[in-house]
Design a protein around this nucleic acid. Structure first.
Length: 776
DNA sequence: GGGTTGCCCGTTTTT
DNA sequence: CGGGCAACCC
């Protein structure tokens, strides 16, 4: 499952692999097109492969590794291949093993972060860590920052831990230690105190012997800076370096790669500037754009033959992305020998999100009837909150589905708790884990008890766990804590004797944790127990708990594979690198996609990144793509009306088919609008773009989704001006006839906020909440 | 110490 | 609409 996590001793080069079939007998080379082949065979020197969507970049990367190994240019141990997701590296490893017919065991193939762990685990002391440091998850990080802010008298309502943490992360992404942050860069938030908090945060991490995601890159960088000898051995070791998704590397990753590749200079980066969608996480498209500046002798290869999508899908996607400025410029072509242009991209507007979801799922069923497996279809959304509507429709229709992203398995409360128990068992000095579980289930350990334990810990310079012995405690609390500590010790002593799964079961039983949920009568308790059982299953695939903990710190749901025939529902971000026969792209509305926040915070650049996201979405589709938007969407429990995304308009007419049902589907229905329409003159709701001939002034226009949009937009404004925005408005409900589930019909006689006083016909005067009433 | 209530908040994307 | 949190009560 994660064999690149078994951190083997790396000092000794393993023996060379048994002779593979020697080139040119390697059959896989002949499957490549000339550009791909060039990218594989140019093993020496820096190579930049600009690889459009669906042009076979994974194939190039894996073949290149196989070629390097097969021609005995290097042993597996001397090849470093980095990817962004565990899934990508797993896939690459599998494909590689298929090609070379050998386990790719000794290659350094993994995510940047797993490579970081591997290096730090090898040199903990030199990197300023102790062995068996822990990797914090987002939750832990936020907790720490919050504590630091509170300790320093910051109003965390005004300056949120999440934002502070985000600023710190961005600095880390750029390879900046606290000392390297200039005051000028620390003006944006919290009166220039964030740099100080960053330092405190780092101190705290070291105290806890913990690292965060950013440290997995930052600490190796520092290690190499302070220990040139260590750097030198890695530089020597890595004869060939390959990088996937290069457009998404941040500065720290760039610096690492540059350092590591200095000796042999055989670095091959594969990426697509049009698919750069992680700038908010510190990714620098600049890295790809300036590759040739850093390596003037670089060979640049463009892969433009698309083997994935139909001509219409490619045409639509290409036209869309052409609206972005500052691209390196690639033109995707349908690869030779592929027939027909396929279906046009279907575009459809709906009245609301429910209709949209219903129709999408109906289309899913239809496709399924025509032989497309569910697993070959995907619903790709902009924000995870959009998944719910589709989930509900799937349940109604009885369609098996899998939601990726959103609530992550390892971020669920019960999983984090369970993992904390395991962490504590493994390492009783893990204060974070200790605090998390010491009173879960409730053992009567409250704030005051924890305070005295913390004080004792500080005084005696020991962990919270060890401080129990020193702390001054009330007898009952002392008894409880001693018993708890005793339990943890028994688990700790067993850790090497039992299987991870068995030990976990024992821990969660004996601690009373599972029982806590068994006794919990809330509706989701059962699901939580199921999740814990699922955790047992995952555990059974690991040899040691430690392996699992390291794995759990880095995985995300996006790494999971869909099992069986399930419809996949996920965010556009999570879909990068995947492909499906049929792709549904709902929610193409201004404000949602492009997302308002992206526009507000990053302006034109934000818009372009959103557009790249749209491009990524479209290019996931092999045969069919279905774009939709609605005029009314429920956001934060409130109905808001919306305009079609500008991206809809950027899809050229010749590649789309408008499926909007204007009788019932999109915009305001005629009978709703008619009374409001007096004197209304159509005006374009969209700035016309020069290079778009579509729908403009032609007869098509009246039937286009945009004509409907204009109607709706204008009518929407009118309606809004006439209808109170929320049900909060006074006077409107007084005297209204209402219906209540329990009390039947009645009349509103008084209102205070959401609480209404209603005189019910059969039950007299009652106070009820507005939401339990409907208009009679 | 623990449970409940009520308020206020925000709400993109994730290794 | 839901989560998080502070204030309040048992």
């Amino acid at each position: 499952m994660s064999d690149f996590f078994d951190l083997e001793e790396t000092d000794v080069a393993p023996a060379a692999p048994p002779a593979a079939a020697s080139f040119p007998d390697m059959p896989f080379l002949t499957d490549l097109n000339p550009e791909q082949r060039r990218a594989v065979e140019q093993t020496e020197g820096p190579v930049l492969v600009l690889s459009g969507a669906g042009t076979g970049k994974t194939r190039v990367l894996t073949t290149r590794i196989a070629y390097i190994l097969g021609t005995r240019r290097a042993t597996p141990w001397q090849v470093l291949a980095v990817t962004f997701t565990n899934k990508a590296s797993r896939e690459m490893k599998e494909r590689l093993e298929k090609m070379i017919g050998l386990p790719a065991r000794n290659t350094w193939l993994g995510t940047f972060h797993s490579i970081g762990i591997r290096i730090l685990s090898r040199w903990p002391a030199e990197a300023g860590l102790q062995p068996h440091f822990i990797v914090l998850n987002t939750d832990d990080q936020e907790r720490l920052v919050k504590q630091i802010l509170s300790d320093n008298g910051v109003d965390i309502k005004k300056y949120t831990p999440a934002v502070v943490l985000d600023i710190i992360q961005r600095w880390k992404d750029r390879g900046l230690e606290p000392a390297a942050v200039t005051p000028a860069e620390d003006t944006g938030y919290c009166d220039g105190r964030v740099k100080g908090f960053y330092q405190l945060y780092q101190n705290r991490l070291r105290e806890l012997n913990a690292v965060d995601f950013g440290d997995l890159l930052l600490l190796p960088l520092n290690l190499f800076k302070t220990h040139p000898d260590i750097l030198a051995r890695y530089q020597e070791q890595f004869r060939y370096i390959l990088v996937d998704e290069y457009q998404d590397t941040n500065v720290a990753q760039y610096l690492l790669l540059r350092l590591l590749s200095q000796k042999h200079r055989n670095i091959c980066c594969v990426g697509d500037d049009d698919q750069s969608i992680y700038s908010w996480r510190g990714a620098e498209v600049e890295n790809i754009l300036k590759f040739q500046d850093v390596y003037p002798d670089a060979l640049v290869i463009r892969l433009e033959r698309n083997y994935r999508s139909t001509a219409h899908i490619l045409g639509a996607a290409s036209a869309l992305i052409a609206n972005n400025a500052g691209r390196l410029g690639k033109t995707l072509k349908v690869a030779d020998g592929r027939d027909g242009s396929g279906d046009r991209v279907k575009v459809q507007g709906f009245w609301n999100g429910k209709q949209e979801a219903e129709t999408v799922i109906a289309r899913v069923e239809d496709e399924q009837r025509h032989g497309t497996p569910l697993s070959q279809m995907a619903v790709l959304v902009r924000t995870s909150s959009q998944t719910r509507a589709f989930e509900e429709e799937c349940i109604k229709a009885g369609i098996p589905y899998k939601i990726i992203g959103g609530f992550k398995f390892y971020e669920r409360e019960e999983i984090r708790d369970a993992v904390a128990y395991l962490r504590l068992t493994l390492n009783t000095d893990d204060d974070l884990a200790f605090s998390r579980v010491v009173n879960k289930p409730r053992r009567g350990i409250g704030d005051s008890a924890m305070q005295s334990v913390a004080a004792a810990a500080k005084e005696h310079h020991v962990s919270l766990f060890d401080a129990i012995a020193w702390a001054e405690l009330r007898p009952s609390v002392r008894k409880t804590l001693d018993a708890f500590a005793g339990l943890v010790r028994t688990w700790r002593d067993k850790q090497n004797m039992s299987e991870p799964k068995e030990l976990a079961q024992q821990i969660l039983e004996e601690s009373g944790y599972i029982n806590m949920w068994r006794l919990d009568k809330s509706p989701d308790a059962e699901g939580r127990i199921e999740n814990i059982k699922e955790l047992y299953n995952v555990l059974s695939e690991f040899e040691t708990i430690n392996d699992f903990i390291e794995y759990a710190a880095l995985v995300t749901d996006a790494d999971e594979n869909a099992t069986g025939d399930q419809l996949v529902i996920m965010t556009l971000h999570a879909s990068k690198g995947l492909e499906f026969d049929t792709v549904f792209l709902p929610g193409w509305e201004e404000g949602l996609f492009p997302h308002q926040k992206a526009l507000d915070e990053s302006g034109e650049q934000g818009l372009e990144e959103e557009r790249r996201l749209a491009y990524v979405g479209l290019t996931r589709a092999r045969r069919k793509a279905f774009v939709s938007f609605v005029s009314n969407r429920l956001v934060y429990g409130q109905w808001q009306n919306a305009l079609p995304s500008r991206f809809v308009e950027e899809l050229p007419a010749e590649h789309i088919e408008d499926c909007t049902d204007r009788q019932t589907g999109y915009g305001f229905r005629a009978e709703d609008v008619a009374p409001l329409m007096t004197g209304w003159q159509p005006r374009s709701a969209f700035p016309q773009q020069q290079n778009h001939t579509r729908f403009k002034q032609s007869d098509d226009y009246a039937n286009s989704p945009f004509a409907a949009a204009e109607t709706r937009a204008t009518a929407g404004r009118l309606v809004n001006s006439l209808t109170p925005r929320t049900s909060r408005s006074k006077s409107r409900r007084l005297g209204k006839r209402v219906y209540h589930e329990t009390f039947g019909f009645g009349t509103v006689v008084r209102e205070e906020g959401d609480r209404l006083e209603v005189h019910f016909d059969d039950h007299g005067l009652k106070k009820v909440l507005a939401r339990f009433l409907s208009e009679a």
